[in-house]
Design a protein around this nucleic acid. Structure first.
Lengths: 194, 194
DNA sequence: GTCTATATGGCGATAGAC
DNA sequence: GTCTATCGCCATATAGAC
């Protein structure tokens, strides 16, 4: 692994943990066991390093969902598969999830456009298409947003939910969460189309 | 308004915008038109100031939902009222919403317990109770989480959704969002109990 | 309670040797 | 491509006058 990749990989983890201004170049340098100057040899400044780290983290996610779309399943099965894949990705790559949370929190308009157009557009369009198949008379963007929002909130609220009444260990199991969400959505979409 | 309240009120806005490490005491001092030393007269250190600001921001939210629970409406109408109130609170008090997003992102276990037990427990329990009325055979915590997650994601993703295909101006109207979510949930819960 | 002045240290970034 | 050394600045926090 090249120095540059090592820096990027470590930066993802630390930026996700501490945020942009929370991570200093000195801390990053120590974590990759290099000098600050060595990092500045590979990246012109901190901001560019951050942007490259975000792109690096996103780069391998596109293909995870390909098999769902390319499977010969029914629309209902595809919905289940997509939800399960989404939860798995977020639970397995927590740093990726936290980086996304941070990006959305900062909500910089320029960065949002980059994220939407450059990274998520294709997946979102395919999901809207699926929503249209399942419930043609409903607003596809609203349905797609609900699907993503439902999946994401369970990953996001996990540390909080532990402290509420009614919590059970199975609430952290991806298959349980996915089943609940999928059933909720299919119940509703079926009722509507009926 | 006392100096202390002025500092706390301004700190909420700026911490929500910039995060803990992103806001310096100098910037805060300038924003409230005081010296840094004057702030340190009221708070022992930056961390205590932050924690007091978070508590200050949360302090007046409890009663917003009281009228929903105390209304004589049916369970279905209460669900609609709760969702609408939740969206309104988050859209009207963006700083409160962003502070919450940040807290959940940092996911400090101790802070999560404080948040859950000290601030949200009562509302969450009432919501679980409502979920049990609407769908007795489903897991109340899962349903309650879905309700909150659905409402929150529309507020959260707004800056992103603008950049996706299928976006319409009405997707930012609280009554449209609330109606979509409420219908989605009621469709599903009715289907299940039938 | 608020100020000016300052202590102490970490910050991003660069220069120049190897 | 990596280092040591350093610049200039801003950070948190405090001392002491008013």
């Amino acid at each position: 692994m090249s120095s540059k990749e090592k820096i990027l990989g470590t930066a993802i983890v630390l930026f996700a943990q501490k945020g942009y201004s929370g991570l200093s170049m000195r801390q990053l340098a120590q974590a990759v066991d290099m000098s600050v100057a060595a990092i500045y040899h590979h990246f012109p400044d901190k901001n560019t390093l951050y942007l490259e780290a975000v792109r690096f983290a996103f780069s391998d996610k596109e293909q995870v969902f390909a098999q769902v779309w390319e499977s010969g399943c029914s629309a209902e099965e595809k919905l289940g598969g997509f939800i399960r894949s989404l939860i798995d990705v977020m639970l397995q790559d927590r740093d990726f999830h936290r980086l996304m949370q941070r990006e959305i929190l900062e909500a910089d308009p320029e960065r949002m456009q980059l994220l939407a157009q450059g990274i998520f557009k294709r997946q979102f369009s395919l999901l809207m298409q699926l929503a249209t198949e399942l419930a043609p008379e409903q607003d596809a963007q609203l349905v797609a947003t609900s699907i993503i929002g439902l999946a994401k909130c369970y990953v996001e609220y996990q540390p909080l939910l532990k402290n509420f009444p009614g919590w059970k260990p199975k609430h952290e199991m991806p298959e349980v969460i996915a089943a609940h969400i999928t059933e909720l959505l299919l119940n509703s979409l079926r009722a509507k189309t009926a």
